[in-house]
Computed example of a mutant assay.
Amino acid sequence: MSTASTTKVPRDTLNLRIPAAERNLIDRAAESAGKTRTDFILEAARRAAEETLLDRALMVVSPEAYEDFLKRLDQPAQPNERLRKTLQSKTPWKAA
């Protein structure tokens, strides 16, 4: 009987030609993360692919909602206590 945890997903092959220095860098990073080179590359590529696609996501709103959005963008910023505190605090890199 096959369960979800024992079912193997078919895999395709992806061949890459990369400079040895880059492969060594990837190998060192994968080892430090306790992953295989393949798993490390797949995870990084998947994350980059998701971010790229999410950056291009299309949001559809009603004309009224879009008009309200544009009006809010055109309004001058309204300072509040949190913003004032942030602007008056010392930057962490200059605190020392």
Score class of each variant (00 low, 15 high):
residue 20 A to V: 14
residue 21 A to H: 13
residue 22 E to K: 10
residue 23 R to G: 02
residue 23 R to I: 03
residue 25 L to F: 11
residue 25 L to C: 05
residue 26 I to R: 04
residue 26 I to K: 03
residue 26 I to H: 05
residue 27 D to Y: 02
residue 27 D to W: 00
residue 29 A to Q: 09
residue 29 A to I: 06
residue 30 A to I: 05
residue 30 A to P: 01
residue 32 S to K: 09
residue 32 S to W: 00
residue 33 A to Y: 05
residue 33 A to M: 04
residue 34 G to V: 03
residue 34 G to N: 01
residue 35 K to F: 00
residue 35 K to G: 00
residue 36 T to C: 02
residue 36 T to P: 02
residue 37 R to F: 06
residue 37 R to D: 02
residue 38 T to I: 03
residue 38 T to C: 10
residue 39 D to E: 15
residue 41 I to G: 02
residue 41 I to T: 08
residue 41 I to E: 02
residue 42 L to F: 05
residue 42 L to C: 13
residue 42 L to V: 14
residue 42 L to A: 11
residue 42 L to I: 10
residue 43 E to K: 06
residue 43 E to G: 11
residue 44 A to V: 11
residue 44 A to T: 13
residue 44 A to H: 09
residue 44 A to P: 01
residue 45 A to V: 15
residue 45 A to K: 07
residue 45 A to R: 06
residue 45 A to E: 05
residue 45 A to F: 10
residue 46 R to L: 09
residue 46 R to S: 13
residue 47 R to M: 10
residue 47 R to W: 07
residue 47 R to D: 12
residue 48 A to M: 14
residue 48 A to I: 08
residue 48 A to Q: 12
residue 48 A to K: 13
residue 49 A to M: 12
residue 49 A to E: 10
residue 49 A to P: 01
residue 49 A to V: 08
residue 49 A to T: 08
residue 50 E to C: 05
residue 50 E to F: 11
residue 50 E to W: 06
residue 50 E to L: 13
residue 50 E to Y: 10
residue 51 E to A: 15
residue 51 E to Q: 14
residue 51 E to I: 09
residue 51 E to P: 02
residue 52 T to H: 12
residue 52 T to V: 10
residue 52 T to N: 08
residue 52 T to F: 15
residue 53 L to R: 13
residue 53 L to V: 13
residue 54 L to I: 05
residue 54 L to T: 06
residue 54 L to E: 15
residue 55 D to Q: 13
residue 55 D to E: 15
residue 56 R to T: 11
residue 58 L to A: 04
residue 58 L to S: 06
residue 58 L to R: 11
residue 59 M to C: 01
residue 59 M to L: 11
residue 59 M to G: 00
residue 61 V to A: 06
residue 61 V to T: 05
residue 62 S to H: 03
residue 63 P to M: 03
residue 63 P to Y: 01
residue 63 P to K: 06
residue 63 P to W: 02
residue 63 P to F: 02
residue 64 E to C: 00
residue 64 E to V: 07
residue 64 E to R: 09
residue 65 A to P: 00
residue 65 A to L: 14
residue 66 Y to N: 08
residue 66 Y to A: 10
residue 68 D to A: 15
residue 68 D to F: 04
residue 68 D to K: 11
residue 68 D to M: 08
residue 70 L to D: 03
residue 70 L to H: 01
residue 71 K to L: 10
residue 71 K to P: 00
residue 72 R to G: 06
residue 72 R to M: 09
residue 74 D to Q: 14
residue 75 Q to H: 09
residue 76 P to E: 13
residue 76 P to G: 05
residue 77 A to L: 12
residue 78 Q to T: 12
residue 79 P to R: 09
residue 81 E to G: 07
residue 81 E to R: 13
residue 82 R to Q: 13
residue 82 R to S: 14
